[in-house]
């Protein structure tokens, strides 16, 4: 990580004013949200938005910026959640320490997996990462004595501050959104830094990028590890927030849900990913009658969106709107 830090520091990242303003706007919104939403159920759902935003931001960097499709974010989410849960609930570690150790573990696994699979491209990368997700899913279900198996792992302690557990929805709201806003700020900066430019160059073509003197495989592993870490951080926060994890957190279905978020918001748009998470989380929570048809509806949505807006629904609509606007003016 040190090499990448120095790249980040020596190259002041010129984040566009629009992104910065949007980010401050989101901060303000988060600040007043508990009053606006009146606490309770709405706030609770908004906390899930903050958590699911983390793997989505990670996947956005990896797929949208670097062009590497990975179906392993659910696996890293589950890894973070279960590592945090097992260390704190079973080993009795302080939740903060458990959370930190979970990220270290996830980083080690991500470096290894990244090193193994990132020499593959396209379909082959997708299948290798999908295999990893299935391996993790099987392990979670089978290692019952460690993970609680199909019943899941319960009794995970909440994070606490000065001896007081953070339990109220409002307190959790501020905690979770602080983390998510921080990660988003980091990701926005990264996207416009020298590294972000390198990622986009890799997306356009490995060989040409290598020719320009960019260390392609190092950058790929870097962005893979970062992106997986965002997912595992989301998982750890989820574990301490819900105080329970089930194998569904590491399922292929959840991995596809995260991809669906990007298909909705736009693969190379961080703000699109945020909107996608917001829309899909509330859709999932409130359309209860819709739950029965979720599989069909999401499947059809994926087919239709990808057929007509291959860069993502919102991104595609915005682009179409801009074309119309220019034609009118």
């Amino acid at each position: 990580m040190c090499a990448s830090c120095s790249t980040l520091c020596t190259e002041p990242a010129p984040m566009p004013r629009r992104d910065r303003n949007l980010w401050f706007g989101l901060c303000a919104l988060v600040l007043v949200a508990p009053w606006l939403l009146g606490g309770g159920y709405f706030i609770n759902t908004s906390n899930f938005v903050a958590i699911y935003a983390l793997p989505a931001i990670g996947l956005c960097l990896l797929v949208g910026y670097c062009g590497q499709l990975s179906i392993s974010h659910a696996a890293f989410f589950a890894l973070g959640a279960y590592a945090s849960g097992i260390l704190s609930a079973r080993q009795g570690l302080n939740p903060w320490l458990a959370l930190l150790l979970a990220q270290v573990l996830a980083a080690v696994v991500a470096v290894f997996i990244g090193w193994v699979v990132l020499r593959l491209r396209g379909h082959y990368l997708a299948i290798a990462t999908l295999s990893f997700t299935i391996i993790i899913e099987v392990l979670i279900k089978e290692l019952g004595s460690l993970t609680g198996g199909l019943q899941g792992l319960s009794g995970i302690p909440r994070l606490s501050l000065g001896g007081w557990p953070i339990a109220s929805d409002t307190a959790l709201h501020y905690l979770l959104w602080t983390v998510t806003l921080g990660v988003l700020w980091f990701a926005l900066n990264l996207a416009h830094s020298r590294m972000g430019r390198a990622y986009r160059a890799i997306k356009e073509g490995d060989a040409a990028t290598a020719l320009l003197g960019v260390d392609v495989s190092r950058h790929k592993i870097e962005v893979f590890v970062l992106s997986s870490l965002f997912a595992s951080l989301g998982g750890s926060l989820y574990a301490h927030f819900v105080t329970f994890v089930s194998p569904a957190a590491g399922s292929v279905m959840f991995a596809i849900d995260i991809i669906l978020v990007l298909a909705f918001g736009g693969f190379d748009r961080l703000w699109g990913a945020m909107l996608g998470v917001l829309a899909l989380t509330y859709l999932n929570e409130y359309a209860v009658t819709f739950a029965d048809y979720k599989r069909v509806a999401f499947g059809v949505a994926l087919v239709v969106i990808m057929s007509f807006f291959p860069t993502g629904l919102l991104a595609g609509l915005v682009a179409a709107g801009q074309r119309l606007w220019r034609k009118g003016a």
């Binding site: 499709l69 997708a126 599989r295 069909v296 999401f298 499947g299 994926l302 087919v303 990808m306 291959p310």
Partner: peptide, 13 residues
């Protein structure tokens, strides 16, 4: 990527 996702979507549908 979009074709890959289309076939995943078709499978779910």
């Amino acid at each position: 990527i979009s074709v890959l996702i289309i076939t995943i979507g078709a499978s779910m549908a």
